[in-house]
């Protein structure tokens, strides 16, 4: 009798404990709600707060305007220069990451013997763990001077703060991520496909690039999409090395301003709550959030696609 009483009270206690766990896990949902609410709320404020000349920013002008001068008169809030700056750096970074990340992945999964893998993997992990402000420093004090010398030799005019340097270093930064996800995809290609290819007399490079890589294509695509998303959201490299001039340009030798760098620029000055400046960073943040979220969803869908296949 006593025993059942004991179990009963214990059961109740445990039910209560699980309830607590459940409520704690709801915190993540709350975070998402907070992100969505404050981004939309402040973006709404952005469109309903007067500019210095008394006009309001129109959504159309914000999304498709090509002049971004929030801090000068006349104020203009066309986000395209920031988007172009972000995309320019991203394209350079992804090009680097495709070459370095994919070769690393193919090398690790198809070529490297176990002991070589054991050397390369930690190097990639170290690269992945370096803080982005350190990469920014490296871009500005090491890569940029080299590029400046090169551009002198070849007769290009180049600005100290430029998209190229930031993009190249950002490419190094996302390489570990791209190579890890691609390698997972390559490794999960069944061995019998490779065996069949070798049985047909194919060489290693033919097997790797005509059989294994195509079979893992959705995973490789996923690694690139997720890499792009990471590059778009990256902040410190572009803030330190790419400049703070919102140019609507696709010339990598010029100074630009990325979306994230703009948010940092305003944050540094402690924009007063309720001002147009303050709500501007949320409007830019919302655009950034939508871009990265959709890329992440596509990336995850691609990953699930290759895990389904094998």
């Amino acid at each position: 009798m006593e025993y059942t009483e004991y179990t009963k009270s214990r059961r109740q206690k445990e039910k209560f404990a699980v309830l607590i766990l459940r409520s704690i896990s709801l915190l993540s949902v709350l975070t998402t709600i907070a992100i969505l609410f404050f981004l939309s709320f402040e973006t709404f404020n952005f469109f309903t707060t007067e500019m210095e000349d008394g006009r309001f920013v129109k959504p159309w002008d914000f999304l498709f305007g090509t002049k971004w001068t929030p801090l000068f008169k006349p104020q203009s809030f066309g986000i395209l220069p920031l988007v172009a700056g972000t995309l320019l750096v991203t394209v350079i970074a992804v090009t680097v990451a495709i070459v370095l990340g994919l070769s690393t992945a193919v090398f690790l999964s198809e070529y490297a013997p176990e002991n070589v893998r054991r050397v390369i993997k930690p190097i990639l992990e170290v690269l992945a763990g370096i803080p982005t402000v350190v990469y920014g420093y490296f871009a500005l004090t090491f890569v940029t001077p080299i590029l400046m010398n090169l551009s002198d030799v070849f007769g290009f005019s180049m600005i100290i703060f430029n998209a190229l340097s930031a993009g190249l270093v950002m490419g190094i930064m996302i390489t570990p991520m791209v190579s890890t996800i691609s390698e997972d995809a390559l490794i999960s290609v069944p061995q019998h496909l490779r065996d069949a290819s070798y049985a047909m007399g194919a060489k290693k490079f033919q097997t790797a690039f005509r059989v294994v890589v195509p079979a893992a294509l959705s995973g490789i695509a996923a690694s690139l999409v997720l890499g792009i998303s990471r590059a778009i959201g990256e902040t410190m490299i572009v803030t330190v090395a790419a400049g703070s001039t919102p140019n609507f340009t696709f010339n990598p030798l010029e100074s630009i301003q990325a979306m994230t760098a703009f948010i940092v620029q305003i944050s540094l000055g402690e924009a007063p709550h309720g001002s147009l400046e303050y709500s501007t960073i949320f409007a830019v943040g919302l655009v950034l959030f939508i871009m990265t979220l959709s890329l992440n969803i596509i990336g995850k869908w691609l990953v699930s696609k290759y895990s389904e296949n094998y």
């Binding site: 993540s28 404050f38 959201g233 990256e234 902040t235 994230t260 959030f289 990265t292 979220l293």
Partner: peptide, 28 residues
Amino acid sequence: RFIKLNISNLAGVPSIIYGIIGMAVFVE
């Protein structure tokens, strides 16, 4: 399942977004 998916999406949100949300929620 939605909670799990939500967490993996939160992991992909750029850190600067957390910064401005933290500013809006905690600071302001």
